[in-house]
């Protein structure tokens, strides 16, 4: 009994300690991010890597999700003659839910893992120590630009994903299910509201913060050579994916 209680207590205190370390790490990184000097080249590089280079992954995911959504919605709605709702279902699902969540999960795998691996490798090869000895704060130089790029690029990617996803649904509805193009577009435009899009973009900004902060935190604190870097990469992807799904619920409840 005492053994069980002590185990639970240890896990609980470990969790609190980890949360504290993460909070301090992020607070320090944010403070560093808002104080000069600013490393513009690093920021541009991160905007490029997180934003532009993620476009194919996010675009393909959104396209096929929109297409599948149209097919599945048709299967369900045709049973009670509500095929006309497909356009609005595709639009609302993509903008409010699937766009941000799927883009977040894909970026988590692509960017969060890469960040943890890159910064982790820098840690175990003493490049982070070298930065300090070269009078450069690693959090200012490495972490702050990544956090900023994550928070700003994810909403842009999700906006593009929304458009591509809705287009995917349109293509299937018109060419496979023989809908009238003009009516489909009108139904999409009639039902979709600004709030549907902005709620998805707000979620995306939170997800961008989660992905980059998990990638940076686990990479920055990795140790133990190649195995440690591998572990940091796994932690970064798994923790950001889980946090995205949990945060998604609370944000949905808040923005409902």
């Amino acid at each position: 009994m005492i053994w069980a209680l002590s185990s639970i207590g240890r896990v609980f205190f470990d969790f609190l300690a980890s949360t504290g370390r993460l909070t301090l790490f992020l607070a320090h990184a944010l403070i560093q991010g808002f104080t000069p000097p600013y490393y513009l080249r690093q920021m541009v590089r991160q905007f490029w890597e997180i934003g532009y280079l993620s476009l194919p992954v996010v675009g393909l995911t959104a396209l096929f999700t929109g297409m599948v959504l149209a097919l599945q919605s048709y299967t369900g709605f045709s049973r009670f003659n509500a095929e006309g709702a497909i356009a609005s279902v595709v639009a609302l699902s993509m903008t409010r839910e699937l766009g941000p969540v799927l883009a977040g999960l894909m970026i988590s795998g692509r960017i969060g893992g890469a960040m943890a691996a890159e910064i982790g490798t820098m840690r175990v090869t003493e490049q982070l120590d070298a930065l300090v000895t070269l009078s450069t704060n690693p959090q200012k130089y490495l972490i702050a630009p990544r956090l900023l790029a994550g928070v700003t690029m994810l909403p842009l990617l999700v906006l593009i994903a929304d458009i591509i996803g809705i287009f995917g649904g349109y293509v299937v509805s018109i060419y496979r299910l023989n809908f009238n193009p003009a009516i489909y577009i009108k139904q999409t435009m009639d039902f979709i509201q600004l709030g549907d899009v902005t709620s998805g973009l707000i979620k995306a900004a939170f997800f961008g913060f989660i992905i980059t902060s998990m990638g940076c935190y686990h990479g920055f604190n990795s140790k133990g050579g190649a195995q440690g870097v591998g572990r940091a990469t796994t932690y970064a992807v798994v923790s950001s994916s889980i946090l995205i799904l949990i945060t998604n619920y609370f944000l949905t409840a808040l923005l409902f």
Partner: peptide
């Protein structure tokens, strides 16, 4: 940070970026 400005370090594995 101020003290390190006058110190140059060559690391074991070079630690190049």
């Amino acid at each position: 940070e101020a003290r390190l400005k006058d110190i140059g370090v060559m690391f074991q594995g070079s630690a190049l970026f």
